[in-house]
C-alpha cells in the first residue's frame, strides 16, 4: 500500500495518468463545445438557450456517478480501512457537489426560459436540490468532523446518503403538486435531428470524463497534503 501511494504521488505513472486524464477531459469538453455550438442547429421551440440541455444532462449523470463513487469508496473503506478509499470518497463528494450545482443552475436557467420561473416545485429539480443538500452535509462533515474518526464517519455518512438517494428519487415522484413539467425529451422522441443525439452523447461524455478527471486530481492533492 505504501508503495502504491508513493507511485500515485510521485511516480511517472501518476504523471502519465495526469496527462492522459487531462487530454481526455480537455478534448472531450472541447469536442462537446464544438458539437453544441457549431454543429447542432437551433431547437425549434426554445432557441439557443436549449443548448444548455446538453450539459445539464451530462452534469446530472456525472452527479449520479459521484454518488456511486462515494458509496463504493465508503464500503471499501469500511472493509479495508484504506486511506485512499477515504480520499476517493471525499473527492467524489466535493466534485459531485460541483456537478450537482451545475445541474441545478443549468436546470434553473433552462426552466426560466421554458416556464418563466427560476424554480418550480417539480420532481427532478427538487430531487437534485435534495441531492445537493446531501452532498453539502457530506462535505461539511469532511471539513469539520473530528479528524481521528473521520474516515469511518465519512464512510458511514456516505453510505447513508447513497442509500437515501433512491428513497428521495422514489418519494419525490409522488408529491401531488408536482406536475410532470420536466421535459421527457429522450423518451418522447423529441430529438428530431440525429445531430441532437450526437451532441447529447458528446456533452454527457465530456461531463463524466471531466468528473473522473477532477476526482483523480483531488485524490492526488489529498495525498500530497497528507505528506506535508
Amino acid at each position: 500500500m505504501e508503495k502504491f501511494k508513493e507511485t500515485l504521488r510521485k511516480g511517472a505513472l501518476a504523471a502519465w495518468v495526469d496527462g492522459l486524464g487531462f487530454a481526455v477531459a480537455f478534448s472531450a469538453v472541447l469536442f462537446a463545445l464544438y458539437m453544441v455550438f457549431m454543429v447542432v442547429p437551433n431547437e425549434r421551440v426554445m432557441g439557443p438557450v436549449q443548448r444548455i440541455f446538453y450539459f445539464h444532462v451530462g452534469a446530472a449523470v456525472a452527479c449520479y456517478c459521484s454518488f456511486g463513487v462515494v458509496l463504493l469508496g465508503g464500503i471499501y473503506y469500511l472493509a479495508t480501512r484504506s486511506a485512499i478509499a477515504h480520499l476517493v470518497g471525499r473527492a467524489a463528494g466535493e466534485v459531485g457537489f460541483i456537478f450537482c450545482s451545475i445541474t441545478l443552475v443549468s436546470g434553473m436557467i433552462w426552466g426560466h426560459s421554458a416556464w418563466n420561473t427560476w424554480f418550480r416545485w417539480e420532481p427532478r429539480l427538487v430531487t437534485f436540490l435534495l441531492l445537493w443538500v446531501i452532498f453539502l452535509g457530506f462535505n461539511l462533515l469532511n471539513e469539520f468532523g473530528d479528524e481521528e474518526r473521520l474516515g469511518v464517519q465519512s464512510a458511514v455518512l456516505g453510505i447513508l446518503g447513497a442509500i437515501t438517494v433512491p428513497l428521495v428519487v422514489y418519494s419525490i415522484q409522488f408529491l401531488p403538486q408536482s406536475a410532470q413539467l420536466h421535459p421527457q425529451v429522450v423518451g418522447n422522441r423529441g430529438l428530431k435531428d440525429a445531430s441532437f443525439e450526437a451532441a447529447l452523447a458528446a456533452g454527457t461524455f465530456a461531463m463524466v470524463a471531466l468528473q473522473f478527471f477532477l476526482v483523480w486530481l483531488r485524490v492526488r492533492i489529498g495525498l500530497l497534503e497528507k505528506e506535508r
Binding site: 446531501i134 452535509g137 422514489y170
Partner: peptide, 8 residues
C-alpha cells in the same frame, strides 16, 4: 448531516 437525509 441529518436533515438532508430525512426528507423522504
Amino acid at each position: 448531516i441529518l436533515l438532508p437525509l430525512v426528507f423522504p
